[in-house]
């Protein structure tokens, strides 16, 4: 009797019930919070970057001549770098936000396609963050060695 019960249990595949559903919902809530904070931080970084760039540009303009040209060029480059960094970070965290949105929707509608779309987003998020982590690690090691 016991053996037969065991066999039935082992024949079962993974289930998205009870605790797993609850934890998926938890992960969705916290990942949404993190992504929204990162989006806000990127917006703030952009605003502060534009303000800082304008100040730098104005102070260089006052110097006139070469200062005007230098300020114009450096201000534009600074703005472009900030814009690029903010866009790149936002894009990465968009995948985390998408994971949260799709998982929440999947749990409500019990739609496996939505769940897969959410997991695909989480997969892309982990791939990108891991590649960034590896690059950052190489950069730290390079600084340490040279």
């Amino acid at each position: 009797m016991e053996d037969s019960q065991y066999d039935h249990l082992t024949e079962m595949d993974l289930q998205l019930e009870g605790e797993v559903r609850h934890q998926f919902a938890n992960a969705a809530i916290w990942s949404k919070f993190i992504s929204i904070v990162v989006f806000s931080a990127c917006g703030l970084m952009l605003v502060l970057g534009i303000m800082g760039g304008m100040r730098f540009f104005n102070s260089m303009k006052r110097l006139g001549g070469i200062g005007y040209l230098f300020g114009n060029f450096t201000g534009t480059i600074l703005l472009l770098v900030i814009l690029f960094v903010a866009a790149a970070i936002s894009l990465v965290y968009y995948f985390l936000f998408n994971f949260s949105r799709k998982i929440k929707s999947a749990l409500i509608s019990e739609d496996i396609n939505e769940l897969n779309a959410g997991l695909r987003s989480l997969k892309i998020f982990f791939i990108i963050t891991t590649v960034f982590s590896i690059l950052s690690l190489f950069n730290t090691i390079a600084k340490l060695v040279w």
């Binding site: 993974l14 289930q15 998205l16 019990e110 496996i112 769940l115 897969n116 997991l119």
Partner: peptide
């Protein structure tokens, strides 16, 4: 609402 092959692969 169980995981399919795509879910497992992801």
């Amino acid at each position: 609402f169980g995981p399919d092959e795509e879910t497992k692969s992801n």
